[in-house]
Design a protein around this nucleic acid. Structure first.
Lengths: 229, 229
DNA sequence: AGCAGAGAGATTGTATATTATTTGAGATAC
DNA sequence: GTATCTCAAATAATATACAATCTCTCTGCT
């Protein structure tokens, strides 16, 4: 019964939601792109109401901004918002990792190491998108077993918000990639050794803090010489 | 009320949103209450679409649950969801307090102490709702100066979700109230003394953890003797 | 060059039809 | 006689089409 309700009959608003979300995530709708209700409705072959509802939902998730009587556009995080999101994600994700730790199996760790190895490989021919994918896959192992659904939800939200603007910023420090991979291994080791929960949490958080610092440095550098990117 | 500031022209969906939200917060719409689109629309004198949008927004905030072709009802957190929310809130709020600490002024601390004193007073003639109000007011001082808006938003979300079900659960441990007030003072003192940021964070988090423990104990007790409450 | 007004385009809201779910009555089987 | 299954009617959500309101832009006049 619940199996069949999600199958063929998918509510049009949900359909619209998935459709738009897909485009945002794939980068077809870049940050700042204006989402016109009528156009989307016509393209999807539905009315404007479901589209509107879908957009409202995306707004609540922070993927879309909405202005009264003006319309919606794909969220565009400026540098400061990006930093804030990253910091918040670090806090939430660190806690989720800490809570997950007792439930992470040896198999999980092995899988994570495999992903990490792929990340190292991918450094040869660096492709930002692929690296980001792998990165998310790795981190998933760290927090997916978190027994607190509420917290886990916050983590997912944070990741999604980061994804919104990744095209414009994720390649900001190629030099950071290598260090990132090493930190991954460090965190894995802590979990494997059954380290103190606070230590695990802070290691996971620091992993983001360092990215944040690298970003700030890059940002300052970019300001100094805006020409050569 | 902040009611008439941006209004004059207040979008009907926003109007509906505020109206429903008000009722939920005031307890007029108790957890589990069924929100029928048509009825609300008629009572507000608007069409069903704005109401629907308002409810979708409340759903995104976690205050309302929505089921396809069935309808909406005020969210009802069971014990486990309540615990999870509380734990997540503790984590997020603890971090927010930690980040706020450097910006908290002597005046802020004085104000917080005043609120705390009122909480002690209110213990004489204990009124759960008043106590909850004061509690939120106190905690606001601790995290409102948080420079990270994203994180602050998560804190607010958490508090609102707690509010949804407070009527049914907040009076669960009157004995906890006194300890809570003492912990408040402890946190204030740490901030005042410029304690280590991690120490502040963990003190703030522990404040919630203890409430959580008390709740678990109460829960177990209730299971043992469900008759006498 | 700068301001005013008209018009196009997009959002917001209403009325209405459609679709899905639930509920209750009646009939049949045990 | 009770229980269960089926079918129909009511109820409520979902989607469409239409109307009205607002915003932004482009053009023309001073």
């Amino acid at each position: 019964m619940t199996a069949t309700d999600t199958n063929g009959t998918l509510s049009k608003s949900q359909q619209a939601y998935s459709w738009i979300r897909e485009r945002i995530n794939s980068g077809a709708f870049v940050p700042g792109f204006r989402l016109v209700l009528g156009s989307i409705a016509k393209e999807l072959g539905v009315s404007v109401v479901p589209v509107r509802e879908a957009i409202r939902r995306l707004e609540a998730e922070g993927l879309v901004t909405f202005e009264r009587n003006v319309g919606a556009q794909v969220a565009m995080l400026d540098d400061s918002a990006y930093s804030a999101t990253m910091q918040a994600l670090g806090i939430v994700e660190g806690a989720a990792t800490m809570l997950s730790a007792p439930f992470i199996t040896a198999a999980d760790i092995a899988a994570a190491r495999l992903v990490n190895a792929q990340m190292i490989e991918s450094l040869e021919h660096f492709e930002p998108r692929r690296f980001t994918e792998l990165n998310r896959e790795f981190h998933s192992v760290l927090f997916e077993r978190c027994p607190n659904d509420q917290l886990l939800d916050l983590v997912h939200r944070g990741w999604n918000q980061m994804n919104v603007l990744r095209d414009s910023t994720f390649s900001f420090v190629p030099g950071r990639a290598r260090a990132s991979v090493d930190e991954h291994e460090h965190i894995l080791k802590l979990i494997e050794d059954g380290a103190d929960s606070l230590e695990i949490e802070m290691a996971a958080r620091a992993h983001r803090t360092r990215t944040l610092d690298a970003f700030a440095a890059y940002q300052a550098d970019r300001k100094r010489s805006p020409a050569q990117r």
